[in-house]
Nucleic acid binder design. Sequence first.
DNA 1: GCGATCAGGT
DNA 2: CACACCTGATCGC
Length: 712
Amino acid sequence: MSRFGGRVREYPAVSIDRFDRDNLRARAYFLSHCHKDHMKGLRAPALKRRLEGSLKVKLYCSPVTKELLLTSWKYKFWENHIVALEVETPTHISLVDETSGEKEDIEVTLLPAGHCPGSVMFLFEGENGTVLYTGDFRLAKGEAARMELLHSGTRVKDIQSVYLDTTFCDPKFYHIPSREECLNGILELVRSWTSLTRYHVVWLNCKAAYGYEYLFINLSEELGIKVHVNKLGMFRNMPEILYHVTTDRRTQIHACRHPRDDECFRGNRLPCGMTCQNGTPLHIISIKPSTMWFGERIKKTNVIVRTGESTYRACFSFHSSYSEIKDFLSYICPVNVYPNVLPVGGTEDKVMEILKPLCRLYRRNMEPRYKPLGTLKRVHKRDLSDTDEDDLFDTELTSARPKIPKQQREESRPSSTGQSENAERNNENTESYKATTTYTSLKVDFMDCEESNDDDDDEDDEEEEESAKNIVQVLSHEPDAMSTSNFNGVTSDQQDSNADVPRWDAFFKCNKLEESSENEDNFPSSADAGGSQSLFSDSDGVSDSTHISSQNSSQSTHISEQGSQGWDSQMDTVLITSQERNALDVSCFSKGGNRAVVSVLQEAAKDTQPDSGRWKPLGQNRSCAYDVACDLKSKDCEKGAEAVTAHVPDVLVEISDSSRTPDLELRRDSQSSSDFEIPPTPDAEVPQPDKLHCLYKKLAAGESILNEKHVS
DNA sequence: GCGATCAGGT
DNA sequence: CACACCTGATCGC
């Protein structure tokens, strides 16, 4: 939960994601996304009054955020004061003080944050330096490097301060499975269950918040089953979402909610009240998305854990993991960093200890001297962290920060031959990014979190639903009639040029029309869909017939009941292996009286191969994804020891490890966010193992090594 | 009567 | 176990 006060010190005339107290005097407001903890004060009478007396005060946000905000009547009064800014389009804004006439100019750029629909980061540029406010974000490794507008020419912009989403800035959250892994895990579980009979239904126990739409859409696309939700009026202008959700309860996937939905579930009732269909009782399992990090840091485990007879938890995170945060920040390399969030079990000091070493001054002072050893940083870190961070960081604002070398981005792409520190750092990013994308074979967008956005449950409910039905009708008849310009307004050209940067707009775009028509084959007719509640008349299996077929393969196995332990350890996204079939089986799934059948990934690769749209978790990319996954996995194992060691605050451990692993290429391969991964300076010679060993010995003995840094 | 805040529950 | 969200009760404007 954000505890950001609303203002950045460089530009105190603007307020971001906070609208109460001092923020009432801001000259301009910014909203990064539509989650409650970022909207404090946004509908308070005080602010409303101020708005009424002002022509100048505006709220800037992405087009999607604007849309979501204004679908709630509680925020309607903002209507004439909201300015939707296109994503990735630098915009000049004059901040005028209405009483004094004082003026300040800034340029703001919205960057996709990958957190929930419409979520963005704000990049402010002006006289007081460049400031990046991340809001809440989930960006995979290497994604900062792919954002054009974080760069100036071929270099990373000189960023003074980053106000960072540090929700999971704790080594505990070192690794969080990627969106694709999580999605695929859920997909296979849902597929396995819903394909048993039409009376096997899944309840996705999602919190009231934007960010699960990505999941709904993918499930719907893959399985041909729309997702039942309480409300969908807010998506009335987002056909790509709207098409995959429904208010028709007769579907096999539910994400509806009820104040006491746990009770419902225990009574074999869905939150929407459904308990049987055609007189046949439903067989319900629940899947609760939650942020889980499976295994310790590098150890990969399942993204699905069975927690009861018919309850599951699925890994799902709206926020970047520890390693993703470090990757992001180290790429940006700002002068200052300020945490927006105190991570779950942490303190500000602790977070700063993690973040500071990724900032400029720290690196500048520490790197050249100690880099080859990579360990002494810790010694000094303590000293630094005891000082006031502002003093620390402000000391050398004007100093020449080690700029990312020009060639960095170009070089980094084809190979990792760059020698300069920054180039190499970038290589790493790019490399892991490459791996990530290949691994998943689709580009992600966002997904998210726990914050509530359920503001307007009451009055407008029915109204919304009614209008939504009409919308569906329209949509079904003319799938291409609705423009996609609402989605952050990014053109397809832009998207193509940044195809790998996660963003909602891109997500919404991908082959929508084709898929719509494809799905329409599976669904009743458009006309049928238009009949509002009859949308799912086909839920009797028509819609997923093509998918079911794949499950009858010879490699199909049965879901077992044991907990996470027994689950397949080879593939994160595959829940079931044959070895898990055991005596427990029957009792476990007794509820449905059936065993769930699931095909393994490899089999899935032979599945129906719709198109290779970026958002297709399956299809022909699948086998490829699988291979890479395995490949990565073994790599992970190789470097496991080192990655773990990196977090042990014991110099000697790291030392001995380093001496055993002198191969830089290999080291570069390891977790890029490791503190010890800092590559040598451009001119530095690559330390030889024996030299290193010698150095390490001295170090361990407490001798000075400063005058010997010239080990060649 | 509304909103902010807090406690309790999940 | 901790968190964050929801609900309901209370207080103050």
